[in-house]
Nucleic acid binder design. Structure first.
Lengths: 107, 107
DNA sequence: CAAATGCGTAAGTCCACGCTAACCTATTCG
DNA sequence: CGAATAGGTTAGCGTGGACTTACGCATTTG
């Protein structure tokens, strides 16, 4: 699970990152948003931490997890590297066709 | 493997998409870039096709795979939806700190 | 101190996934 | 037609990953 891209792609972890993006949260607070058990969330957080995307700060008997800006920046770089110029052009093409000639989707 | 994000995250498939972004290619051409066997590549292509990211066109005994612009656009939308405003701000913050105060990374 | 709270860890299960080997189909070419 | 080429399909294997249950450790609180 080395790269940040794969770590962030998993649906639960994607959601965790979004939740943490709004500010630090404890494991319990995060776990409330999921049907999975707290240990499961804890393990997902460990994966994200291993990828350098989040970090934890001890505070009494709580552990406040928060996003690591540098890690998120690296994830962004990975995504951008994947999103090559060619893919970008394809999207622009698809968008143009969808907005100006929507019926051609089925031609 | 429903969503395009998860389908595209796998390293081999990420590479396949990049290769196909430069233009249609046959399975054999694609397989040359990997150490895995051709059936493995074929299965990865099937996953990408299932996610609506690529499609195949028969041409004699060849099958030319190409990227589906609309699928790529949807992938882009998924990424953008994940990449919330908060994450964007965090990256901007990290970039600013890295370029103006690089030593603070270790403070 | 004892109970309760917040979390991490360990152990074990289950299944999806990535892969290979073997086989089958379709097409081209001698 | 028979051989060769291109590629999809299947079966089966091994591993990793996501999950739960149970437990252990620290910290707060009565």
């Amino acid at each position: 699970m080395v790269d940040a891209f794969s770590a962030a792609a998993e649906p639960t972890r994607r959601r965790l990152l979004q939740l943490l993006a709004t500010g630090p949260k404890t494991v319990g607070e995060l776990a409330e948003h999921f049907t999975a058990t707290r240990p499961a969330i804890s393990q997902h957080l460990a994966v994200l931490a291993g990828a350098g995307l989040v970090t934890a700060r001890k505070d009494g008997r709580h552990r406040h997890y928060s996003v690591v800006p540098a890690g998120i920046a690296q994830l962004r770089a990975e995504i951008d590297r994947f999103w090559s110029t060619e893919l970008e052009l394809l999207v622009a093409d698809a968008t143009r066709r969808a907005t100006t000639h929507p019926e051609e989707h089925y031609s």
